[in-house]
Computed example of a mutant assay.
Amino acid sequence: MVFFSNVIAFEMSTETDYECYVIAYVNFMKSLIETTGDVKELREKGIMVSHLRSDDQMVRMFKQIDTYGVDHWGLFQDVTTRIDDHCNSKAKTWMADLIHTYFRTPCTAIALLAAGFLLCFTFLQTFYTIHPMKNN
C-alpha cells in the first residue's frame, strides 16, 4: 500500500509530465473490488495475482488507498464500456440465470435432455400416426 501511495504522490506532483496511470488503475480496481468474492473471482480467472494472506486483506488495501479525488477514467474507458455491455446484455443475463437456477447439478441437465428427446419422439409418433407411410 505504501508503494501505491508513493507512486500516486509522484504522479500528482507538478514536476512530472506523466499520465496518472496508477491513479486510473487504482480507481478502476476499486470499482471492481467490493467484496472478498470479487477478489476470489478475479484471482481464479487469472486476472489478479495476490501475494497477501487473504482476499479480505486485498479488499481492505484497495479501500485504504487514497487517490485524493483524482480520476482518469479515460484510460480504462474501453474496458469499462465492454464490461458494462457484457453485464447489461439481456440474453447473457437470462442464460446465466437459467443455468444458475435450473442446472445446478448434472442430473437436471440429463433430465432436460431426456425430456427433450421424449418430446421429439412424441412429436414424430404423432406425425407418423396422422400421416402414415404408404407401402406400395
Score class of each variant (00 low, 15 high):
residue 94 W to D: 03
residue 57 Q to K: 05
residue 46 G to W: 07
residue 5 S to D: 10
residue 97 D to F: 07
residue 114 A to E: 05
residue 12 M to R: 15
residue 42 L to D: 00
residue 7 V to G: 11
residue 57 Q to A: 02
residue 27 N to F: 04
residue 12 M to W: 04
residue 41 E to V: 01
residue 115 A to L: 06
residue 52 L to K: 01
residue 67 T to V: 13
residue 40 K to Q: 04
residue 22 V to D: 00
residue 122 T to D: 15
residue 131 H to P: 01
residue 6 N to L: 13
residue 26 V to E: 01
residue 85 D to C: 04
residue 47 I to A: 12
residue 25 Y to W: 15
residue 22 V to I: 15
residue 62 F to K: 00
residue 83 I to F: 03
residue 133 M to R: 06
residue 17 D to L: 07
residue 126 T to N: 10
residue 23 I to V: 15
residue 73 W to M: 11
residue 112 L to W: 07
residue 136 N to S: 14
residue 16 T to W: 02
residue 10 F to E: 14
residue 122 T to Y: 13
residue 103 F to E: 02
residue 23 I to L: 08
residue 93 T to L: 12
residue 28 F to Q: 01
residue 72 H to K: 12
residue 26 V to R: 01
residue 31 S to Q: 06
residue 35 T to W: 07
residue 65 I to L: 03
residue 59 V to F: 02
residue 20 C to R: 04
residue 82 R to D: 06
residue 122 T to P: 06
residue 53 R to W: 05
residue 71 D to T: 12
residue 47 I to Q: 12
residue 79 V to P: 01
residue 36 T to W: 02
residue 12 M to V: 05
residue 20 C to L: 12
residue 81 T to E: 08
residue 63 K to A: 09
residue 89 S to N: 15
residue 37 G to D: 12
residue 62 F to G: 00
residue 10 F to G: 10
residue 95 M to K: 04
residue 21 Y to F: 13
residue 128 Y to G: 01
residue 69 G to M: 08
residue 40 K to T: 05
residue 85 D to Q: 09
residue 49 V to E: 06
residue 135 N to I: 13
residue 94 W to P: 01
residue 110 I to V: 07
residue 98 L to A: 08
residue 85 D to K: 15
residue 75 L to H: 04
residue 92 K to L: 15
residue 33 I to H: 01
